[in-house]
């Protein structure tokens, strides 16, 4: 199944926040994790993630810290801030509501 561009765009923020909820991470690892949990269905263009991360950082949902990789390279790690946790809760509720709505409507049609 191929996801539409709009769907991918709408789902990036909740996915990024959910991943960072599990612990700090960095760009490449986030893309790999999304690829893994979607079983290769959701593929993000490499370049698109960083501007989104920077926007979330500006909104104070996440915080960036410079660190080092295992091989000693400069690496920027992101971690979730309290505001980000609140946003994640809100987004989860929204998506669950949408899911309930869609299920209800599908059920009505079947009857």
């Amino acid at each position: 199944m191929k996801y539409s561009k709009d769907f991918v765009a709408a789902s990036t923020t909740p996915l990024i926040l959910s991943i960072l909820k599990l612990g700090q991470s960095y760009g490449y690892a986030i893309i790999q994790q999304v690829k893994e949990i979607s079983q290769g269905e959701m593929l993000w263009a490499d370049g698109m993630l960083y501007p989104i991360l920077h926007r979330l950082e500006k909104k104070l949902f996440i915080e960036a810290v410079w660190g080092l990789s295992e091989t000693g390279r400069k690496r920027k790690y992101y971690k979730l801030l309290p505001e980000g946790e609140d946003e994640l809760k809100k987004q989860r509720q929204n998506w669950q509501q949408l899911n309930t709505m869609l299920t209800k409507l599908a059920g009505e049609k079947d009857d």
Binding site: Y26, G27, Y28, D46, Y50, H54, R73, K74, R75, K76
Partner: peptide
Amino acid sequence: KNIDELKDHLYCQ
């Protein structure tokens, strides 16, 4: 300030 991040990504890949 953004290039180091992209560079790290490129090396990971």
